[in-house]
């Protein structure tokens, strides 16, 4: 029996030579992806994962792991296996071309035309 400097360890009555069966697959459950919102009005941000046996416990662990200091108002969890993702190898699908200016506010310049028109009307 361990006689430890730590009274909690001594009280737990632990044998020093206490070989155990190895942990089996799924002993630590599956994982949930955690989304955390700091304050109302902010986006929820992905902050990491927790291992949990179900969504309720995932929320409990996520609160301890990602919400124990600083601001928090809301947490979402979703099973990792329910998340669909794109592949980094396919990231060329996000490449944009210069012609995409037509999608942006900066692609529309009218002041030159207006000024030219005003000048011509005055004259």
């Amino acid at each position: 029996m361990i006689k430890s400097l730590d009274p909690r360890v001594t009280r737990a009555e632990i044998e020093l030579d206490n070989a155990i069966e190895p942990l089996k697959e799924m002993d630590q459950w599956e994982t949930f992806e955690v989304f955390h919102q700091k304050r109302r009005g902010d986006q929820h941000m992905h902050v990491g994962i927790v291992h949990a046996p179900n969504a309720e416990m995932a929320i409990l662990f996520a609160k301890e792991q990602y919400g124990r200091r600083g601001l928090s108002v809301n947490i979402w969890v979703v099973k990792t296996r329910d998340v669909f993702t794109t592949d980094y190898d396919d990231s060329d699908i996000f490449e944009t071309v210069p012609e995409k200016q037509y999608r942006e506010a900066g692609g529309y310049k009218v002041m030159d035309k207006i000024n030219k028109y005003k000048k011509s009307v005055k004259a």
Binding site: M26, E30, E33, R81
Partner: peptide
């Protein structure tokens, strides 16, 4: 329950 390696 089913394990899948997390993404990030």
């Amino acid at each position: 329950s089913k394990y899948m390696v997390p993404f990030a």
